[in-house]
Design a protein around this nucleic acid. Structure first.
Lengths: 181, 181
DNA sequence: CATAACGCGGACTGATATTATCCGCGTTAT
DNA sequence: ATAACGCGGATAATATCAGTCCGCGTTATG
């Protein structure tokens, strides 16, 4: 796949729903069902966001996740790094030292400092990271909110509330997880 | 692996050697041996550079590759695109349309235009590509040349000339490809 | 206090991309 | 004619990604 994987897509979209939910904790299952994506896979992404301090988890029944910071304080870069783990755009194999002219013993002038080719890629990576760092979760949420009609917020709250009350632990009566369209 | 693969590393370094070679055509085998990398793999990269118009090939004995443009006119972006094939930084799965609230029939306001999350990544990708577009092969070669001592250029010419004369097609006497260190 | 819904982590699987290698074909200087 | 080229296809090893499944400890509910 591409450099930024679907894990990032799942993660960012889920965080956007959390900004909608306010102080209510949403479970990874709710978030997965709401978005029509794999629950077990999304469940592997959230612990990464938690370790990065972007999200807070509450365990047990009625547990789930909440944003641990204001959406303005969460940059796209922080989310990407939390999920992808600071993977470099380019990983230099240091070709320069293998030059046959050096015959196995490359001089120090050839190998010290950063490889000129690597430097080019590092500048490109920095430009990308700066662009990501300049965009917050709040910015993305705003762009998204501008498209949705006003009644959508209410519909979302209804869906979430139905879901929250439906999933109460009732021994002997496993919940059906059926939700009106 | 990372988004920018070793193919790019091989390609850029090889093009840098071509700037050294001037009007002499270097074979992919020479370039591979000179740099201590796989010949058969490098041989798969050059046709891509040729199709992109960065390099010109001459066939037959004593054939090889030459730059088809001045190093100032070749940007890092052109090389990356030629080799990697314009692969996107992020490929959007359009999660937004799968929202359960829409019940399988997402409204047009939800799906038209570019997804807000995708837009963030597109801005980051553009920043990266702009950074690559702003750096030419000549720039990289200069950074590299500044490190090498003056006598290195002569050593390189010697290595290449030895190589060129050693590989003359002599029936019955397959060349040994041995070159002094 | 038993139950079921949580989060957490590890093992595992299938698909795809990367990094190669090898072979046969047509071209061309010696 | 020969051997060194470039060109393209087939194949293989390895890694990563996307996704599933399981068992563990925690916790509100009835």
């Amino acid at each position: 796949m591409a450099h930024l994987t679907v894990s990032v897509e799942y993660g960012v979209h889920s965080l956007l729903w959390l900004t909608y939910a306010g102080d209510k904790a949403l479970s990874s299952r709710d978030l997965a069902d709401l978005q029509g994506i794999s629950h077990s896979y999304l469940a592997k992404i959230f612990p990464k966001l938690e370790k990065a301090g972007i999200v807070r988890a509450s365990e047990g029944v009625r547990g789930g996740y909440m944003l641990s910071r204001a959406p303005e304080e969460v940059s796209a870069l922080q989310i990407v790094d939390a999920i992808e783990g600071r993977k470099p755009l380019f990983d230099c194999q240091d070709i320069r030292g293998r030059c046959a002219i050096f015959g196995g013993a490359p001089p120090t002038w050839a190998t010290n400092g950063v490889c000129a080719v690597h430097a080019v890629m590092l500048r490109a990576e920095k430009a990308m990271r700066d662009a990501l760092a300049g965009q917050s979760l709040a910015d993305i949420g705003r762009a998204l909110g501008d498209k949705a009609p006003p009644e959508f917020a209410a519909e979302t709250q209804t869906w979430l509330d139905t879901r929250l009350s439906a999933r109460v632990g009732r021994p002997g009566a496993p919940s059906e997880r059926e939700v009106p369209t």
